[in-house]
């Protein structure tokens, strides 16, 4: 890790000021992705602004018919939250499968979505469920928030405050693990919302995306078994030594069928 300064602001206002003061400042939440990046000397922030203990970013609260999750909420706390389990059990399941137990104890939902790793789990849920993301400056729809791999609509100095998700008991996240890293080789979040089916796919390599053709197929009464991988644009997938684009696309289609079967 290169030399840097660590600061722990006492309030959100302080945190935003610290981030604004210094172009090289980097927000630190759970740090479970950031620390390995820093250890590998792949990033050179001048200072880390620790958001993990800010009370403004904490807590899981009911919001309308859904829930609002503070950005600093750990994956473990999401996975074990009775509120999440009752209104959105698929999200608890997803959170309980991120990384490993130690990582779930530190890693946070805000940190995960702000990083938007193309193999991260959370972005698929937010995109499929039509979550809204409240930042220090505004509220964004998930589809506007995730803008590409490792890329979001967050401006410099802007941080995620909370994520609001609708209740949904017809949803399922299924992850096909990379045998080495255990990240998602492909992850599928499928939900049946009042407006119809929603399917979001992560792990393809180019960032999370929705498979709208399959959604429409299901909405118009099409069968699960007819969800064909050939109709999934291969441009959404890249290949590496763990699987070609073609294989990832195939696994995505298989996983979509499994997820849809589980909620219908």
């Amino acid at each position: 890790m290169y030399e840097l300064a660590y600061v722990r602001p006492q309030s959100l206002t302080d945190a935003l000021a610290m981030l604004a003061q210094d172009d090289g400042a980097q927000a630190l939440s759970g740090g479970q992705t950031l620390m390995p990046v820093l250890r590998a000397r792949l990033a050179m922030p001048t200072r880390l602004v620790d958001l993990a203990r800010l009370h403004e970013l904490a807590g899981i609260t009911p919001a309308g018919d859904g829930i609002e999750i503070g950005a600093a909420t750990t994956h473990h706390d999401v996975s074990t939250s009775s509120a999440v389990r009752s209104v959105l059990p698929a999200l608890a399941g997803l959170a309980g499968g991120i990384g490993d137990a130690q990582i779930r104890h530190r890693g946070t939902i805000g940190g995960s979505i702000a990083n938007n790793d193309p193999a991260a789990c959370y972005p698929s849920a937010l995109l499929a469920l039509g979550a809204s993301i409240t930042t220090s400056q505004r509220t964004l729809a998930a589809q506007d928030f995730f803008t590409g791999m490792f890329s979001t609509a967050l401006e410099p100095g802007e941080i995620v405050r909370s994520i609001r998700l609708p209740a949904c008991d017809k949803a399922r996240y299924i992850k096909f693990r990379n045998p080495a890293s255990r990240f998602a080789l492909v992850g599928v979040f499928a939900a049946r919302l009042p407006g119809g089916y929603r399917i979001a796919i992560t792990g393809g390599g180019n960032g999370v995306f929705r498979w709208q053709e399959a959604e429409q197929h299901l909405d118009s009464g099409g069968s699960v078994s007819a969800i064909a991988e050939e109709r999934l644009d291969i441009g959404n997938f890249t290949g590496d030594l763990h699987g070609s684009a073609e294989y990832r696309r195939h696994i995505a289609a298989v996983t979509v069928r499994q997820a849809i079967s589980a909620i219908t």
Binding site: Y6, R39, Q102, R106
Partner: peptide, 27 residues
């Protein structure tokens, strides 16, 4: 390891297992 995978550094922080190679001392 240096990628937060092996778990040999696991300790408890506030009663929860974490990887002490993925946390700053200051945190």
């Amino acid at each position: 390891c240096d990628t937060s995978q092996c778990g040999a550094c696991t300790v408890h922080i506030d009663g929860r297992a974490v990887k002490s190679c993925t946390v700053l001392a200051a945190q």
